[in-house]
Write a protein that binds this DNA or RNA. Structure first.
Length: 502
RNA sequence: GGCGCAUUCGUCUAGUGGUUUAGGACAUCGGCCUCUCACGCCGAAAACAGGGGUUCAAUUCCCCUAUGCGCUACCA
């Protein structure tokens, strides 16, 4: 479609924006909520600026690689609604977009740096490095590589090479001076070069480290803005140094604040950090999660809380991002999710709840016709008190099954008076006479009965609700009975009375 | 330990050198509605980390301290 458009209006089409941003996760497991939020902001920045959003898989750590993790990443992003313009499964002009398929590129880049005198081979064994670190820590010195191999003579180097000693490629970090970079949210950040290590660029297994791969790829993929979590701030001066060594212009850096656990600490598996898809499984809607995540660190500048994706895209700017880490408060997400559920059409809601009801054994196959109408009625009754899709499972159980037990609290409160059985029986007799079993007639009948007996309607409603649903709370009593139907209501009243006697 | 980043109600945040008795939302508490539970509505309580400066004036600018977080790997 874009081609057709360009063909006919070639001269009037505004030039494509230069903005290119990427999300570059590692396939080391599920996509957790913090990464998802970084992806979301990168995506928002791209979409808000008519730029290009690129997905790149950074699978250069073979030890931590988890089989199938890429698929989980794709599924997670798609669930949240973050589509990518270039990357795995969609292609693009700067591929491949999986780093393990680009090892030649990194190797050549590392070689070039050695050639130009910006990097060197290091033959130190992991054991030597570990011992060095230990010694430095014992002496309370800063642990840093001692640059042993940086000073090797040609002869020593030749000996190692001839012996086939494994090596890594290290960057020759300048020994003096300082490196400053501009962070979009924090301004200039400066690091003393002396505090930086001679970082490893190429590992002995031939794979690049993040530092090399990320710089090389961001340059080759023409990334204009690097949006990533602020845990990368201290690595950024090294990256800037690398760009300079290559003679490349660095991109703009935007370090996004991180998500904290509710108690303020780092989000970890133990403290509420769960995968994005787990939120899906716990009954959250993608639009609610999107909205919530966007408001964690960004605000529209006014009092809006519930905002659609389109709305957010239309007003999103980096300037309104906060540099401060934010605690993930699920209570508010739950509230927001409830807002979305309440506004969903019942039809839409049914499509989302049906799979859960199928799993629970409430329904089978695709429910159509009259049965579908009944399901929609049930949802109408439950909708406004639901906050998560999963609330529709236990909350709806008694619409599909007769209650097997009666809530203890309700029994104590509504069933303890000696005349309860008699009241229920009178109600049952009255309801039996109804030809039209709808909300209006039910209410008239019950209130009429209450008046005749000189008791409040509540004296009938509460015990009967417990008898019919097994619960002391729920939707309006009369509408609930209408949806349940005469036969079911009478049967359940009977059963409850038998339980009362025993 | 070193280096770096951050710091407004419990939480997410708005805000400006004087217009602020610092605004909104969630949560909390109280009330209304009501057949219960929710929803909704009304109301309450709740914050500029501390100390120095700069200034006629600082929550807003600077410095220090404290606290939190991050990095300090042949992990990303």
């Amino acid at each position: 479609m874009r081609c057709v458009f360009n063909h006919h209006f070639k001269m009037t089409v505004p030039p494509m924006s230069e903005i290119r941003v990427r999300f570059a996760p590692s396939p080391t497991g599920y996509l957790h909520i913090g990464n998802a939020r970084s992806a979301l902001f990168a995506w928002l920045f791209a979409r808000a600026n008519k730029g290009t959003f690129i997905l790149r898989i950074e699978d250069t750590d073979r030890k931590r690689y988890v089989q199938g993790a890429e698929q989980v990443i794709y599924e997670s992003l798609r669930w949240l609604g973050l589509d990518w313009d270039e990357g795995p499964e969609v292609g693009g002009d700067y591929g491949p977009y999986v780093q393990s398929q680009r090892t030649d590129i990194y190797r050549q880049a590392a070689e070039a740096l050695i050639e130009s005198g910006h990097a060197y081979r290091c033959y130190c064994t992991p054991e030597r490095l570990a011992a060095l670190r230990e010694e430095q820590q014992r002496r309370k010195e800063n642990s840093q590589y001692d640059r042993h191999c940086r000073h090797l003579t040609e002869e020593e180097r030749a000996v190692y090479e001839q012996a086939g000693k494994p090596s890594v490629v290290r960057f020759k970090t300048p020994l003096e001076g300082a490196t400053t970079f501009h962070d979009y949210l924090r301004g200039d950040v400066t690091f003393e070069n002396a505090g930086l290590d001679d970082l490893v660029l190429l590992k002995s297994d031939g794979y690049p480290t993040y530092h090399l791969a990320n710089v090389v790829d961001d340059h080759r993929m023409k990334i204009t803005h690097v949006l990533r979590a602020d845990e990368w701030i201290s690595s950024t001066p090294r990256h800037v140094l690398l760009y300079r060594a290559f003679g490349w212009e660095p991109p703009k850096f935007v370090h996004l604040p991180m998500i904290l656990s509710p108690d303020g600490g780092k989000l970890s598996k133990r403290r509420g950090a769960v995968s994005l898809l787990e939120y899906r499984d716990r009954g959250y809607l993608p639009e609610a999660v999107f909205n919530f995540l966007a408001l964690l660190g960004w605000s529209p500048g006014d009092d809006r809380e519930k905002m659609s994706v389109e709305e957010i895209v239309s007003v999103f700017t980096l300037d309104r991002m906060s540099p401060k880490g934010a605690a993930f408060d699920e209570t508010k997400l739950e509230w927001l999710n409830g807002q979305y559920i309440h506004e969903l059409s019942t039809e839409d809601l049914l499509n989302r709840v049906a799979p859960l009801w199928r799993d629970a054994g409430f329904i089978e196959g695709d429910e159509m016709g009259a049965e579908r109408d009944r399901l929609l009625s049930i949802l109408t009754l439950l909708k406004e008190r639901a906050r998560r899709l999963t609330d529709f499972v236990e909350g709806a159980r008694y619409f599909f099954e007769d209650p097997q037990e009666y809530e203890e609290k309700g029994r104590r409160k509504h069933w303890k008076k000696p005349d309860v059985g008699e009241r229920l029986n009178a109600l049952k007799d009255r309801l039996e006479t109804l030809d039209v079993f709808n909300e209006e007639h039910l209410e008239t009948a019950l209130r009429g009965l209450a008046e005749e007996r000189g008791i409040s309607a509540a004296k009938l409603i509460h015990p009967a609700r417990l008898a019919i649903s097994g619960r002391s709370f729920g939707p309006g009593f009369f509408e609930m009975m209408e949806v349940l139907g005469k036969e079911t209501v009478l049967r359940r009243l009977d059963r409850a009375m038998r339980v009362l006697i025993s």
